[in-house]
Design a binder for these strands. Structure first.
Lengths: 113, 113
DNA sequence: ACTCATCAGTAGGTTAGCTAGCTATCGGCT
DNA sequence: AGCCGATAGCTAGCTAACCTACTGATGAGT
């Protein structure tokens, strides 16, 4: 599939990578960080986050490791070098995409219907 | 489904509405206008455009009418009042979404792995 | 006559996010 | 001790939407 196609729906992956850029986090923490960063706009359910993280891990963009904190198992994800590289590209792609969409959406006076 | 969910993948509808805000166009022209506006970033196939336009028409956001130009049948779509209203909301939603994503994607110095 | 661009549409597949459900641990409460 | 809510992780299956690939028609150019 074309890379542009991903842009139409694949923003989540980029956001996850960006969230993990600041440092490794486990799934639940990623979820909360995103919710906080997005001001409830990105209040994503676990069914969205966990598969996405696994997807990114499978793609080699994240490195997931089990750890036990207080007897509770946690899978902590860290950005890999490939993930960091991907993020740079995604960032540029997002800027490009956002700029284009914004310019197309420039408000024109809506003519009376 | 939540409205926010649409934002993750439903940008196309908004772009189509915005393209038609300047004036009624037929499907093929919409495709070209979008391609031109997007500088090849939105080089969408007919299989994407036509169903989308029909979807928007079914939703009452567009008004489609057959016309014959040079013996060729054309379906010309015009923005309805509802579509115009929807576009205003989408525009605000996009600004909101774009701002949030951009802020999350703020480039931090990628620490050495 | 043949080819190409224009114009419209559909069928079917893939992806990804969502809903809904599950397991398990810890801490606080009764 | 037993229960419940919050934390933490995972999966199955649905749906929406976008894409690929196709059909079919007309008109213009060669």
């Amino acid at each position: 599939m074309k890379a542009e196609a991903q842009l139409l729906k694949g923003h989540l992956d980029t956001l996850l990578l960006a969230t993990l850029e600041a440092g490794p986090l486990h799934g639940y923490a990623v979820m909360e960080a995103l919710r906080q960063a997005g001001g409830s706009r990105f209040d994503l359910p676990t069914g969205t986050i966990y598969p996405a993280l696994r997807r990114l891990e499978a793609a080699g963009l994240l490195d997931g490791n089990w750890s036990v904190v207080g007897g509770r198992k946690r899978r902590t994800y860290a950005l890999t070098a490939a993930g960091c590289h991907k993020l740079s590209g995604d960032r540029a792609a997002w800027r490009d995409f956002a700029t284009t969409v914004t310019s197309i959406l420039q408000a024109r006076p809506c003519p009376a219907t």
